[in-house]
Design a protein around this nucleic acid. Structure first.
Lengths: 346, 346
DNA sequence: ATAGGGTGTGGAACCAGTTCCAAGGGTTAT
DNA sequence: ATAACCCTTGGAACTGGTTCCACACCCTAT
């Protein structure tokens, strides 16, 4: 590997501006103890020499890298949902001159914590200050991160199997109230036979199911859960659940889908059977993903503010870095029901 | 901000193992000049003290950060297409113990190069070794990056207005041959009245149009370009182009859409008018995005290997870093026509 | 005239690694 | 016995910033 040409250093700048190296440092860090004329002379020298300070050297002393890692776990690819969380992290981070490293990790929930093979960023120290965990998070990963004492914030909706003890910082959105609102909306439109379609072995779908149950209970309606066997994907789940929904008696007039992909699959399958949405049956989704707008009519669904989740994660991580001994906190961001075209008035 | 606890240093390890600091460094870098017993004693001390070397300190001397930046320009959000390129970059980078920083940038093509406000990563030096440019790339951005002498590789399909001089490294995929293959496929299935739908003011759509033209020319068929006015998005463009396609005489039997979103909009609009795809009219797309699989029947389209683009960008950037004076290179990755359900045999 | 205070500045020491040279010790060749 | 050589090893010097202490200088108060 060829040598990288040496760059200008503060010593050279100091010489060029006829000042000491300390003064250069003071100008760079805009600590005010520099006279106007000296500052001007230094800035001129910096400009003339094209000097850009070396970030590495500063960090040794500061013991801060101003860099955080966005770690995406167990996702085959960077779904739009997580991509937008990442963008939220990035834009907020950039506004505070923090940098965001992107890394992916694949691990099994059954691997013992100390045998999880972390990405290289987490193996050295002094590379990042903290971590934002996204993707599916199992307890063994949390244990592992704790063992290397890396401060972190978890996107909590995809945390699996952690019980109720919350010994870490987390940011999530409100699954429960999302479907609760959606269910209330359907009831308000006169629907009574409302079913929920989704695989509630996923904790987040379970929370959504609970919101739906609560909505039904409020009006003394009987909740019903529709499952599909051997679904290959959420879209497939939606398609496969169509038959089960249509064969129920009395026939449901509305479906609360566990997410937009299920709603999409359901919609497609209904359309093939010449059942009209919303005239014959109403459908609502959850997440407000791209699919919601691609449907025809567009899907009424629960909006999740993905960028805001990212921003909040970053904000909370920075607080943690500034106050390592602060109590752990948990933030649940509100969700919002978006009325589009897939719900009819009975 | 509270102080970060001091970590173990090589000097402490050296003391614990009763050797000199040089020896610790030699063990860490597995340069062979260390006797077996000494190495064992050092490794034992490292383990006992839980020593992890500080990445920052090493980098000052090595003048390499083993970090690259993926810079996404002028995108409102991280589309699945670019998200997958990023994943390709990340997975290849990780396998070589390189790190990937994610940053976004919004700029106008009319801003003078020296007034483009680069993200913080590019303002300091010693933070990253090189850059991968994705998103829409205008000449002023390229000039700006060149001016700070940061080695870079550009994802070339979205480069706008650069003429033919290629004074930088680039990786792209083959727009021209993609539609050429798609067009040949349609002709092979007996289609003769084939139109192209897309806004060719985008350079990449123009290249696709040229591929279509070439395919038509090979069989002495007359090409036709369908445009739509005031389209809000590609999907909208597809929807609006449906009317213009159907009103042509003789009526086209097949449409080459500039991308999958246009194909999706077109499909949706045709369906609303009870025109069947592919029975009444065949449609092919380009990109093989998620939408292609959400259509019914699934869209025949041109597949682009997005992860491979990312991997190739990373590979090329590393070559550039190892050989700064190497001639610039340009790689065009092949595309591949995927047969699904939207083309019928005439 | 002298003491006291604040401001501005220079530069040694420092951070946590790497590099390189000198030197110790053992082995083999003359 | 001496020279020549190789293998290990220690540690000073170095990288490029930040920090902090000492000190010069000016202004005001006694």
């Amino acid at each position: 590997m060829e040598a990288v040409p040496r760059k200008t250093t503060i010593r050279e700048v100091a010489q060029a501006a006829s000042v000491g190296i300390g003064t250069i440092s003071r100008v760079l860090n805009s600590s005010s103890q520099v006279s106007r004329e000296t500052r001007a002379r230094v800035l001129e020298a910096i400009r003339r020499l094209g000097f850009r300070p070396n970030a590495q050297a500063r960090r040794i002393l500061k013991r801060r890298t101003e860099m955080v890692c966005f770690l995406l776990s167990n996702r085959d690819f960077l779904h739009p949902f997580h991509a937008r969380i990442l963008q939220g992290v990035e834009s907020y981070a950039t506004s505070l001159k923090q940098h965001v490293l992107f890394a992916a990790l694949h691990y099994s929930p059954r691997t013992p914590p100390d045998r999880i093979d972390l990405p290289p960023v987490l193996q050295e120290h002094g590379l990042i200050d903290g971590l934002i965990l996204a993707g599916t998070i199992y307890p063994n990963l949390l244990r592992r991160i704790e063992s290397i004492r890396m401060p972190f914030v978890a996107f909590s909706n995809n945390v699996v199997g952690m019980g109720e003890e919350q010994q870490y910082d987390q940011v999530g959105f409100d699954d429960f109230n999302g479907t609760l609102q959606a269910t209330r909306h359907l009831i308000g439109k006169g629907h009574r036979q409302i079913v929920f379609a989704g695989d509630i072995s996923y904790p987040w779908l379970h929370h959504r199911f609970e919101g739906y149950r609560q909505g039904m209970r409020e009006h003394k309606l009987k909740p019903a859960l529709i499952l599909a066997r051997n679904a290959q994907s959420f879209v497939d789940f939606g398609q496969k659940s169509a038959g089960r929904i249509l064969s129920r008696r009395p026939r449901p007039t509305a479906v609360v889908a566990g997410n937009d992909e299920i709603a999409y699959g359901l919609w497609r399958s209904l359309r093939q059977q010449a059942i009209k949405v919303p005239d014959d049956i109403s459908v609502v989704g959850f997440d407000d993903r791209e699919e919601a707008l691609l449907m025809d009519p567009q899907l009424s669904t629960v909006r999740v503010h993905k960028e805001e989740i990212g921003e909040t994660c970053m904000k909370m991580l920075l607080e943690r870095l500034h106050h390592p001994h602060m109590a752990f906190s948990q933030r649940i961001l509100p969700t919002e029901f978006v009325i589009r075209g897939t719900v009819c008035h009975l």
